[in-house]
Design a protein around this nucleic acid. Structure first.
Lengths: 189, 189
DNA sequence: TAGAAACGATACAGATCAGTATCGTTTTGA
DNA sequence: TCAAAACGATACTGATCTGTATCGTTTCTA
């Protein structure tokens, strides 16, 4: 492995293990064993485990939001359809055999203090996801794009939570139907 | 403390600490320090930490569902109002200064293997919560009580997830408005 | 009221945790 | 090409983890 790739490889390995076992349950020793990178090397890239978690969440945040944007833009051009297509993106995610719930919710659930940097990273990700929904709602000319975004957001969080427990993709389709019904009553200009 | 109360006291202490710090982050040493019970005594009541977690979740499950039932029955007599009043119960919960998200979602998030007894305890709790919604939907004479229950359930999970991050009670009111709108279109007999 | 059982206190075992120190080897970049 | 830096391997530290062993004291119960 080229040295320039090591940091990325560590983050990818860490994200995979965090998704599989959670944050506290994933030890540094496991991450180095699975990645094949020496412990000293890991600690040269990340000062502490918390720094590694924060960097992993940052990477996931960027990737998730970019992937959703790309999916939505490819899937539909009509602004209203674009909003609803975010649920199709969700469905694909739930169908992934590695799906074990939202990593940011899991991070917040293991770092519950609102002053904890890990909690704040999760909070920031959710804020940015909401902002994207608002952007889509604005493009669809809703009178109250904030309210539309809030509702889409709540439906997506609900679908993700239900899917995490049921390990099923059905909640994504259900949430899409609910969103369709709710959006139909919202005023546009 | 009377000996018959020790087990309850241990469970209450454990539940408080699990809610505050999560499951992995809460050590046995902290539980005995906070409860004032000797470690040998704790291990006489619970063979392992996992047994303690399972017993705590069982206790929480019973208490949560009983409290919701009592709240709903006191709050409304009309079956439709009873369904909507579950969101008022949610709002009260979110307003609690100790609210840090759903302990069952946190448990599942830290024990992601679907064969893990802790995951299965969380799964069972969610199944029973859904069954209660279906019971309420049936009493309200909906043609498809299962579908109503699924939608109420998804809205409650979404509200809880959003409230966990935002530490706000607003998602409960928002979800209630959404439920009201959605339910209005559902056929009854 | 007497014996059994539960209790508190404490020390301990053995594993695992995050993080560091050392050192020989490999890669990078000027 | 050569020196600096990064790397792998490994041993280590000190803290913390779950769980156990020991033992004197208290409480329950028959």
């Amino acid at each position: 492995m080229r040295r320039s790739e090591i940091k990325d490889h560590l983050l990818e390995t860490a994200l995979r293990l965090f998704n599989e076992h959670g944050y506290h349950a994933t030890g540094i020793d496991l991450i180095i064993a699975e990645s094949g990178v020496a412990k000293t090397t890991l600690y040269r890239h990340f000062e502490t485990k918390e720094d590694l978690i924060l960097a992993a969440l940052e990477r996931r945040d960027q990737a998730d939001r970019r992937e959703m944007r790309e999916f939505v833009e490819k899937r539909a051009t009509d602004p209203l359809e674009r909003i609803l297509s975010t649920f199709d993106f969700l469905e694909l995610w739930f169908k992934d055999k590695e799906f074990r719930g939202c990593g940011f919710m899991a991070a917040a659930g293991e770092h519950k203090d609102i002053a904890d940097p890990v909690f704040r990273a999760a909070e920031m990700h959710k804020r940015l996801a909401l902002a994207y929904f608002e952007e889509l709602a604005h493009a669809a000319r809703f009178r109250d794009p904030r309210r539309v975004a809030d509702e889409i957001n709540l439906l997506q969080e609900g679908a993700t939570a239900v899917a995490e427990i049921a390990r099923s993709a059905e909640p994504a389709r259900q949430a899409k139907r609910m969103a369709t019904s709710l959006i139909a009553t919202m005023e546009r200009y």
